[in-house]
């Protein structure tokens, strides 16, 4: 009797968990990929008229905003790319191994790696958000002027990428949380 019950549990509940797990990984993959792409394609060139004195003709200077110019954005893009490729690899890995024997070890290893990637993504989001806020508001104490009034489209792109990446990192957080819950719910 005991053996039958434990067999049923082993077959049935991990299956549902596995589908949910794969779905979350796909979710994280999609969001981090889109975030990385949105940052990667954001580039804006503006021609700014500058008047030095009214007597001289107005100068038209060309300014470009690119993600490569700011190290925090480079970090953001690289982290999202790493998270995206990790999500793809772990999705394939968990699907390939899922039918074989050692389910618990797989869950353990994957949740450990998920955690590291989650921390990476969160720190990248923090860095990018901090630089984005300085770009939006400036910082008068150290004479850093705001740039978003000039490059509106770039800043909007970047805000969108930040939101997408936040959703992606929450997906990783949920993955870790459900892995822990799954380990806990196993018959003791």
């Amino acid at each position: 009797m005991d053996g039958v019950r434990s067999d049923v549990k082993v077959v049935e509940s991990p299956r549902r968990v596995r589908v949910f797990d794969a779905f979350l990984r796909l979710f994280a993959l999609a969001f981090t990929l889109v975030a990385a792409v949105v940052v990667g394609v954001s580039k804006e060139t503006e021609i700014v008229p500058i008047t030095i004195t009214p007597s001289l003709p107005t100068l038209h200077l060309q300014f470009t905003a690119k993600w490569q110019y700011m190290s925090a954005f480079v970090y953001f893009l690289v982290s999202n790319a790493i998270a995206c490729s990790y999500a793809a690899a772990s999705l394939v890995y968990s699907l390939a191994v899922s039918s074989s024997f050692n389910q618990d070890a797989v869950v353990l290893v994957l949740s450990i790696l998920d955690l590291v990637i989650m921390a990476l993504l969160f720190s990248a989001n923090g860095a990018a958000a901090a630089i984005g806020i300085i770009g939006r508001d400036g910082n008068s104490h150290v004479q850093w002027r705001k740039v978003c009034d000039m490059f509106g489209a770039f800043c909007h792109h970047f805000t969108a990428a930040l939101v997408l990446s936040l959703i992606g990192s929450s997906a990783f957080l949920l993955l870790v949380a459900f892995a822990v819950l799954g380990l806990h719910k196993k018959p003791k």
């Binding site: 989650m118 720190s123 923090g126 958000a129 630089i131 990192s169």
Partner: peptide, 14 residues
Amino acid sequence: LGLVASATGTAGGV
């Protein structure tokens, strides 16, 4: 961990 990692990233970026 999410909180501390994001705070480290934030302060590190600035």
